[in-house]
Amino acid sequence: MDELLVVEGLRKFFATSRGIVRAVQDVSFAIRPGETFGLVGESGSGKSTVAYTVMGMYRPSGGRILFRGQDITMPHARRPLALKKELQIVFQDPGSSLNPRRSIREILELPLRVHRLVDGRRLRERVEELLNIVELPPDYAEKYPRALGGGEKQMVAIARALATEPSLLVLDEPTSALDVSIQAKIINTLVRIQKERHLGYLFITHDLSLMRNIAHRVAIMYLGRIMELAPAQVFFERPLHPYTQMLLSSIPVISEEEERLKPAKIVSTGEIPSPVNLPPGCVFHPRCREAWEVCRREEPGMREVEVGHLVRCHLYGA
């Protein structure tokens, strides 16, 4: 058992006034130390719900979450402090993830104080080290978030997450609110930090091109289910699920070379159905051009078609 995080049959339902939203249904995956596990999907696919449930921000409706073999299927309020130290998260919106009324020093000192990681005299030094890890100058400690650019704010959020020296970092669309020139710097920093510290990343994004460049393994979600899971190279070179193919074929790219890597253009049709009113059978069948009778009736299970390559589709069933 060298897995850092194991998620087994995770389910999360929300009761709303319009009915029960099945946000996450039967999601299973594992992350190893030093690995980036990518979770892609469109809005409403449940990818952020998975992340938040792993973090304990939601109580799961079913399934198990294991961290280093220890069951952590509980809300974060009931998790021991030592566990909080191991799991940290970087949120999507750098604007709201830093308290506008607190200086960068105060923001970075919080985890150090809560977990009593360094004694009072070394606090100052440690804050500077943290800023250094994310390549920000030491005088940024005295600034307030409003004086920072979006990318710099996100760097501070990463430094805060690293302050407790976690072994797993959940990255919830850390760069989707930022420009590509800033994204590039953040991604490179994240990759370097991972190599130096052998961190596990649960990386969530809707950007497939970005995923191609950072993830070791990728899972694609649609309406709360994982539709396909494979090592990154296989996932992008031999996508099997019609949804993966449709998504890959509609991403805009900037060179002929990339154009050749995309599956033949599948004109995307329809919209994502409401998660309150899921279609029967395979949830993707109303938008799927391969759908036939059984897809309307029966929900396909996850099948391993080659080692480490799992697909939820009747096309690849016995």
Binding site: V180, S181, I182, Q183, A184, K185, I187, N188, D207, L208, S209, L210, R212, N213, A232, Q233, F236, I251, V253, I254, S255, E257, E258, L261, K262
Partner: peptide
């Protein structure tokens, strides 16, 4: 700017 865009070729991302 073009070098910063993540590519489907998976050849990594420039330094920004």
């Amino acid at each position: 700017l073009m070098r910063c865009v993540p590519k489907l070729t998976g050849t990594g991302i420039a330094e920004g």
